[in-house]
């Protein structure tokens, strides 16, 4: 079941290869492909038109993320749609430019300017605007837009090659400042939840594609005169992979169930469940998919690594598996009764 949105986005991307043969993902080609999506308005989906967006709901956003994810190259699209648009919508701030990167750490803003330090901000090197959250009053925060030229960036790359940077702003001038009726620490928590949501949704796309690739491979590849899928040892792995993927799918599904926009995200057991289960599935599915693919799976030419390396890297972003697991355990331990807590009754 491929939606219309997904078809268009996949079409746009398939015309723009992002790879230099033999050298893997090329950041410049990646930017050209993503620019094409931005030019066509796809990065404004999920944000109301009055805020410079294109309208559309979470289902549309997820179709776009799935389309980008099925190709598997590093991409800022999920974060633009889920983190940036989610925060802009919540704050009622119009989208100022193409790549709006939210700094997920508490800053300070006063007459001297905006100051913040954040470690490993995904896609910060691509930013055309940075967004910084700072305390205002007790129950309010300011959202400052800053030109990235004012930032000290220390860039790096994740395992699959996605750019990130340590971001430092030292009394940088704000282009605009908006007061939001949410306490700054809560707003930073909200940004992290949006990030968590983004990684959960991306993980689901990757798990689906890995399962697809693996099933294709075990059907087609023959050894000892038979397709791999005829061997019981292979079947056990295939089913284990499918079970892990299904569990993660269910976990991520229950986290987004009932949401109509990214801004609906809530930091709670449902989201933590999605992240923990996606991380567990990442570990097992990556192991099994590579085992089933054999040596072809670890070549640069074959697609598998785009998804497996990304899955492994995402586990540690916007909260680790352990942090999310402890969050769940602490919440359950504090509840009067485990069963009621599991049913979200309390």
């Amino acid at each position: 079941m491929t939606g219309a949105v997904r078809q268009v986005v996949e079409g746009l991307l398939s015309d723009r290869p992002q790879e230099v043969p033999g050298q893997g993902w090329d950041e410049e080609l990646g930017r050209q492909a993503t620019d094409a999506l931005a030019d066509a308005g796809w990065l404004g989906v999920g944000l109301p038109e009055k805020l410079g967006g294109e309208g559309g709901d979470l289902a549309d956003v997820i179709e776009i993320v799935d389309a980008v994810g099925s190709i598997g190259w590093p991409s800022p699209v999920a974060d633009q749609l889920l983190i940036s648009n989610g925060l802009l919508e919540h704050a009622g701030v119009a989208r100022p430019s193409r790549y709006v990167v939210v700094v997920p750490a508490l800053g300070s803003a006063n007459a001297d300017g905006v100051t913040v330090t954040a470690d490993a901000v995904p896609w910060a090197p691509w930013a055309t605007h940075l967004v910084v959250v700072s305390p205002a009053g007790e129950r309010t925060a300011t959202l400052s837009l800053v030109e990235p030229g004012h930032a000290h960036l220390r860039p790096g790359r994740t395992l699959p090659g996605a750019p990130f940077a340590e971001v430092r702003l030292d009394r940088a001038p704000a282009l605009s400042t908006t007061v939001v009726g949410t306490a700054a620490t809560d707003l930073i928590g909200f940004v992290r939840s949006l990030g968590s949501l983004s990684r959960a949704v991306q993980s689901r796309s990757a798990l689906r594609r890995i399962q697809e690739l693996t099933l294709q491979h075990v059907r087609m590849r023959e050894q000892f005169g038979r397709p791999l899928s005829a061997f019981q040892a292979v079947q056990q792995h295939v089913a284990a992979l499918a079970g892990e993927a299904a569990a993660a799918e269910a976990a991520i599904g229950q986290a987004i169930d009932g949401m109509t926009t990214a801004a609906d995200v809530v930091d709670g057991p449902r989201l933590a469940t999605a992240r923990v289960r996606a991380a567990t599935a990442a570990r097992e599915v990556v192991r099994l998919a590579h085992q089933l693919h054999g040596a072809i799976g670890i070549t640069r030419e074959y697609e598998l690594h785009r998804h497996t390396l990304a899955l492994l890297a995402w586990r540690a972003e916007f909260g680790t598996e352990r942090e999310h697991a402890v969050q769940l355990a602490e919440a359950a331990a504090a509840a009067p009764d485990l069963w009621s807590w599991l049913l979200d009754e309390s």
Partner: peptide, 16 residues
Amino acid sequence: CAGPAVGSLLAELRSV
């Protein structure tokens, strides 16, 4: 029980 081992079980319980 407020540690990662139980947290992981709880995530699995909710998913299954």
